[in-house]
């Protein structure tokens, strides 16, 4: 089990309820992966600046493209409430 606390940023278009929905699903996925993590939410504009402070960014396909070139690994999700999709995405970027 990993001991490091992951910093995850959930990004939606306006930083409203949709990013909270993302956050809740991310928290479920972390639990399933047995990982410790801290999830924050942001709108796309803020994320472009704050994103660099995160270990992983989770967002939709379209928004990922708008984020442009950043060094933080991005997990893109289609279904905001599908825990398994999130688990697989996080596994992939963390190589676990």
């Amino acid at each position: 089990m990993q001991t490091k606390r992951l910093k995850i940023l959930a990004v939606c278009g306006m930083g409203l309820e949709s990013s909270l929905v993302l956050k809740m699903t991310i928290e479920k996925a972390l639990k399933e992966l047995n990982l410790e993590g801290e999830v924050t939410t942001a709108d796309i504009v803020t994320a472009k600046g704050a994103g660099f402070d995160a270990d992983i960014i989770i967002t939709s396909n379209e928004l990922a493209q708008q984020l442009g070139e950043i060094k933080v690994p991005i997990v893109t999700v289609k279904n905001y409430v599908n825990v398994q999709e999130f688990v697989e995405g996080i596994r992939k970027v963390l190589n676990i």
Partner: peptide, 11 residues
Amino acid sequence: EKLGPYIVITP
């Protein structure tokens, strides 16, 4: 209108 498709959060 601004977020368009993103509000369809699950199928």
